[in-house]
Design a protein around this nucleic acid. Sequence first.
DNA 1: CTCTTAATCAACCAAACAGTTGATCAATGA
DNA 2: TCATTGATCAACTGTTTGGTTGATTAAGAG
Lengths: 128, 128
Amino acid sequence: MEEDAPGAESLDRAFMALADPVRRAMVARLSRGDATVNELAEPFAITKQAVSKHIHVLEHAGLVTRSRDAQRRPVHLDAAALERLTAWIDQYRLIAESRFRQLDQLLGASVSHHDQENTPAKKKEELK
Amino acid sequence: MEEDAPGAESLDRAFMALADPVRRAMVARLSRGDATVNELAEPFAITKQAVSKHIHVLEHAGLVTRSRDAQRRPVHLDAAALERLTAWIDQYRLIAESRFRQLDQLLGASVSHHDQENTPAKKKEELK
DNA sequence: CTCTTAATCAACCAAACAGTTGATCAATGA
DNA sequence: TCATTGATCAACTGTTTGGTTGATTAAGAG
């Protein structure tokens, strides 16, 4: 079911990973420095195994990497992966906002901009 | 199971919504202008009902809004919602990157920066 | 060698999700 | 009024996910 552009799977996994509040809290924690499974587990009322799974999800999504330090396997946040996500979102946000501004101007510049901004032709379509 | 900050549910739904390639394609399409269910369904080999559900997911996530135009219910992309997502991501990305730069300096500035950057104390923890 | 700590593997379960078909509602347009 | 088009509601199904318990591997510390 992937009729999308290449790299879609990676985005799938990355957004899915961030869709969970536990995993987002882990990202927040990791932004301040690497941490182990046990450290990441502490704030949550779930088992260590569940945490391990969450980390695996983040890792498989490319958002974190792991290394080795004796028995510990510290988890490390990959900032570049986060940047790829914002890049995807901004790509479309900026297009939409530019349409927004165009129409604002076109409407005399003093309109409350909470109206429909597009809905272009009554017939069929014009965009491309 | 929400021991996260307030607003977490909204982020849950927004990231979850973007975790699907079909919905991402819809966002891409909508960035160029509002569209109806049928228009959004066209590129995909799924039923109209499935598309309707996808749109409902995007709507419930706050990423799109809907209006009325005769029998049509055009879908409209909310750029501000996208911005809230990038804001969340950037918040932590920037923290991580600042740590990154700090350590780069600290290590003499000519080190391959693919090493562990934190792993602070061998004893227990130092961060706060 | 044995005990403890860190983490994972494996099997299992309940809830949620994506998609389907079939029926229905709502607003036109003939 | 009645047929048509756009979209949704409702019920059902197969798959995935998030969590659990229990057993196991790996690396030190005594």
